[in-house]
């Protein structure tokens, strides 16, 4: 019937859209090449594995934030979810003598509840997510500072260290394997399951999704729950590296997480983004930090450089016509 010939597949929007979608990958490859060529220390196997390990936990946390941003919301409370996980896990194990497995499940559940509260306030309470999660962030912080009096709790069993510093086959850091496994599972979910598709639909047009029979409230809340749980998983890894619970462990991570998500090509207005974009975003940021350390540049300059990167990416994204 239609005289229009269908092209076999893929890229709606043509080469430009393709290029834009994967621009970060191209830039990342370029960055790695420049770093490798210009610095002998950078290209050692040891250093590269180190970069990968450092990027792994923050990218797991960023994958959580990714889902919230994908649905068009924002979660500011991840820093507190991380602090809460760290201090309560250590507290349960060290102070209460709880087996690590049970403590682990317990803190993951607590983080899911935090996500649930964020989701309910936003979806049912119709609060702007920025405010709802900012409130949750502060209340939570108050609670775990009361619990720990602000002090770190050390003395976790050294076997727990494997989670943060172990190696698989004596070469690949365990956190990297964990990050890849989680990324593959989440990627498959976004691409091949109905609920994964629904995140994109709700972020693309929430009202149209609702009128298509999608349970938009469930999807909205699920995004926050995923964010809570994944932040908690990342926090456990960070805790394992130092073998102590620390309230301030997540306090500086919010900015990096936001940068990573945006750097990975996720639209801040929702509906567009890729899990592997987030992974590459995390690696990108970590390579820059690492390189600056190797070049003995003052750490404070990292804040300046990361700020410039975030502004540049958002500027490009906001001012590129995608139609």
């Amino acid at each position: 019937m239609s005289e229009y010939k269908l092209k076999s597949k893929r890229y709606g929007g043509g080469f430009r859209a393709f290029f834009f979608d994967w621009m970060i990958l191209i830039l990342f490859v370029a960055l790695v090449i420049i770093c490798c060529v210009s610095n002998a220390q950078f290209r050692t196997m040891n250093n590269i594995m180190n970069v990968l390990r450092q990027a792994s936990f923050i990218s797991i946390i960023a994958m959580g934030e990714f889902f919230v941003i994908l649905t068009g919301q924002m979660d500011m409370s991840i820093t507190s979810t991380i602090g809460m996980t760290s201090i309560f896990f250590a507290g349960f194990v060290v102070n209460n003598g709880m087996p690590m497995g049970i403590a682990l499940v317990l803190v993951l559940l607590m983080s899911a509840v935090v996500g649930l509260i964020n989701g309910v306030l936003t979806v049912y309470g119709k609060m702007p997510s920025f405010i709802a999660t900012l409130v949750v962030m502060n209340v939570l912080k108050g609670l775990y500072y009361i619990y720990s009096r602000g002090l770190p709790i050390s003395g976790l069993p050294s076997s727990f260290n494997y989670l943060g510093a172990g190696y698989v086959f004596n070469i690949v850091p365990f956190p990297v394997v964990m990050m890849l496994v989680i990324a593959v599972i989440l990627w498959a979910m976004t691409k091949y399951t109905a609920v994964g598709r629904a995140f994109y639909a709700v972020g693309g047009n929430a009202e149209a999704s609702r009128l298509s029979g999608i349970n938009t409230r469930f999807v909205g809340i699920l995004a926050f729950v995923l964010c809570g749980v994944l932040s908690s998983v990342g926090a456990l890894g960070l805790t394992a590296r130092s073998l102590s619970g620390n309230v301030s462990i997540g306090e500086e991570l919010l900015f990096d997480v936001m940068t990573i998500v945006v750097l990975g090509g996720t639209s801040l207005t929702g509906g567009r983004g890729k899990i592997f974009g987030v992974v590459i975003g995390a690696l990108f940021l970590q390579v820059i930090s690492n390189y600056m350390v190797l070049m003995s540049i003052n750490t404070y300059w990292q804040w300046v450089v990361k700020g410039i990167i975030l502004v540049a990416v958002v500027l490009i994204d906001s001012n590129t016509k995608k139609d």
């Binding site: 019937m1 239609s2 269908l6 597949k9 929007g13 139609d323």
Partner: peptide, 14 residues
Amino acid sequence: IDELSIKTPSTHQL
């Protein structure tokens, strides 16, 4: 696309 004569260059067109 066939039944409704939808004019689109591909099934993945935005």
